[in-house]
Write a protein that binds this DNA or RNA. Structure first.
Lengths: 187, 187
DNA sequence: ACCTGAACACCGTTCAAGT
DNA sequence: ACCTGAACACCGTTCAAGT
């Protein structure tokens, strides 16, 4: 890549992170180009669509979440690790409002630029679930895909104008539904 | 209202129902005006915004759901009534993809044309919950508002491209989490 | 009273023209 | 190679002009 192109690429990306954080994952791409001081064609040359632009931004966060999953495996009990990790994922998606819908579509769409990273994230969660299940700490009546659906539903709820507090209580209700025997997730 | 105006009003409404069913709750209003054969000004005169247009359409469905809630009170046990009604609500919102987000906003926004109908619907659900709770069939650890949040989260999940089957199983997992002692919702 | 449709300010996406 | 920005086809919303 030519030096000027690389500079544009990096600049667009860092502006996009800003704009998506401020205005959510469906913010105007024109606004990104404007703030980055490049023409629309330059943006489209580097990132052919919105998902291609979200990909490097989200992947960075997803990688940290996968790392976190590994850390939790050694630092916590299997059920604690599961609960804490799910909370981390929800908190992360909340930084880019509306991104959870994009992720849910990407996971179904093999051609999406986001497909691989989203799939990888889901696998990281499934591993924590399987670990808890094998220790008899989580319902075996739940698949990794279903766990991800639950995370998505809770993340969506967290994005709604309805109170954050309710969403936290519901998180506990659902956590207690999928965990076995553990002392109840404290109120 | 003048006769020609009333005719336009009715026509716009029935076209809107069609379009929202086909393309979801955020379908193009221009498209509605086009299909109804009226100018944009006419549409805006009768319905100053999208929610005003959704209101009569949704209210009709909400009224049926409230009726259904009453019917279920006499026809079923309190826990069955609750579960069946929640399923009805989810099925209804699925007819207008994306409408659940609009409903969630409207319930927070006192000025929304949809506020009253959404609030009423939530109260109907809360009554079924309270009834089940008073008979010891549902967790007392749950408010009517939280029940509605759960319904919304499940409805959102149902709208995602991810499999319908998973969303049904998760429904059972969550139903069993909020009901007490009842024989498990069958698989 | 009520209706029409052009006008305005946005958007995503493409592509000829420039360097 | 890469960039620019006008062009195109959409959108929601408003409003002067018509009946």
């Amino acid at each position: 890549m030519r030096a000027d192109a690389e500079k544009n690429y990096d600049n667009i990306l860092s502006v996009a992170r800003e704009v998506f954080t401020e205005q959510g994952a469906s913010a105007s791409l024109r606004e990104v180009a404007r703030r980055a001081g490049v023409g629309m064609g330059t943006l489209y040359r580097h990132f052919p669509n919105r998902e291609a632009l979200l990909e490097p931004i989200l992947r960075e966060g997803f990688d940290k979440l996968s790392q976190k999953a590994n850390d939790l495996k050694s630092a916590s009990t299997s059920s604690e690790a599961l609960v804490l990790w799910v909370q981390e994922v929800i908190a992360f998606t909340h930084d880019y409002q509306g991104v959870i819908s994009v992720m849910m579509s990407a996971i179904e769409d093999l051609d999406s630029a986001l497909h691989v990273s989203c799939h990888t994230l889901r696998v990281a969660g499934a591993e924590l679930l399987i670990r808890a299940q094998s220790e008899g700490k989580a319902c075996t009546d739940l698949s990794g895909d279903e766990l991800f659906d639950l995370i998505a539903a809770l993340a969506w709820l967290r994005d709604q104008p309805s109170h954050k507090q309710r969403s936290e209580h519901l998180f506990k209700v659902i956590a207690n539904a999928i965990l076995i025997d553990a002392k109840q997730v404290e109120n």
